[in-house]
Structures are given as structure tokens and as C-alpha cells.
Amino acid sequence: MTVALRIRQLRKQFVLHTQNGAVLDVLQGVDLDVKPGEIVALCGPSGAGKSSLLKAVYGTYRVDGGEIIIAHNGREIDLTAANPREIVDMRKRSIGYVSQFLRVIPRVSTLDIVSNGAIELGAGPEKARMDAVSLLERLRIPAALHELSPLTFSGGEQQRVNIARAMSSPKSLMLFDEPTASLDPQNRQTVLSMLRDLADQGTAVLGIFHDPADRAEIGAREVTMEQIREPEHA
């Protein structure tokens, strides 16, 4: 398989039963390939379906048609046909998703949150914690905060913890929804170089980056939602 992700004819519509059955067509026949080591940036105005596409690829949105082929355990799996258990397994090994918001269990320490993914994949707890510390240091989370729950951290700190968590156990396909949105320039730089490193190690990255400078910085291939949508809808 030469691509990490192959999307064909992907359709998703929302039927809003609580709003008189209003129908929203968010994805209308999307085609997209992402290769290992490639960074693809989704572009387009808000409401064009960029976040919806990421959520469909992660399996959160159950789609109405098309295929999402993902390389998983050396095979090509169509996520749209996978059962929940298979999706969980794919998420453990092959698809990572980093939202703009940190969702964590209350009272769990930052260090535990960041190291957990690696431990679940079989890393020794000691090594996983050491790696987590260096990731947090690189993202300038002060050591004094490592043992605290990130729920009380600032927005920027939370976002960096979120990224550290993703980077501690990267999957072969990583989805990023505005990873740099609330970061100061220095941290933004760090995160971007981490993304570049990730891709250089062979990870396929699909993300949303508002700032064109960011996209240029990491050498992203830009695709607009217009471009990847089925021609008759374009």
C-alpha cells in the first residue's frame, strides 16, 4: 500500500430530528489520498466540512457512503465497514486524533495522561514516564505542573498537553484539528517542528491549519474541500 489513507466517494449528512428533520450535507463524495510521511492540510472556509472529515476518518462520524481505507496491522481496512471493536483497535495502533480541546479524566496527573498511551501499547512505565517528561519539557510545561491534573491549566497549556499526549504514542496516521490555534509563537514553532519530525519518521498527517505560514513551515500539501469534493457538487 502506497497510501496511509485513501478516501473514496465519502458522504456524510446529518439529519436533525430535533430541528424538524433538517438535512445537512457535510461531505459530498470526498476523494483524498495521504501517503506515509506526507502532511496534508485541509483548507477552505469554515463550514466546508474540514473538521467533519477528520471526525469521519477517526470513526466518530458514521458516514452514509464511500470508503475510508486505512493501513492497519499491515492490511487495508475500510473503516466505514469496521465494527466498534475494530475501530477501537485501529485507534489504539493506526489512527490518532488531536482535537483543539483537551478531554481528560479529572484528577489524573499530566504525566500519567501523557505516558498512558505508550504504556497501553506495551512500553515500560519507567521509560514511558521519562519520554513523557522530555516531551512536556520540550513543550515548556513546567516540571512543577507534571504531577497536577491539566484541567486547571491555561488553554495554551492544555493544548500542549494534548499534543504531548498524541506525540508520546504516535499512530501511523495522525489527524490534527488546529493544533496551533491557541499557542504563542515560541510554542507554535515547537509544535510545528514536532509535526515535521513526525512526518519525517513516516507518519501520515492530515490536519487543519488556519495560518498559511504554518502550512508552509511544515511543507504541507494543501487541498481545499472544493478540490476533493465530487465534481457535480463543486
Binding site: V15, H17, T18, R62
Partner: peptide
């Protein structure tokens, strides 16, 4: 309706689930 927790909470499909 059944599915992964994030599927049900972020993309509920049955009218009652949406409610």
C-alpha cells in the same frame, strides 16, 4: 442505537438519541 461512546455523543442518529 448503539456505537462507540464518541459516535453516540457526537453523531447520534436515532431521533430519541439526538433528543
Amino acid at each position: 442505537e448503539q456505537g462507540l461512546t464518541d459516535q453516540i455523543l457526537e453523531d447520534p442518529q436515532a431521533p430519541y438519541s439526538q433528543l
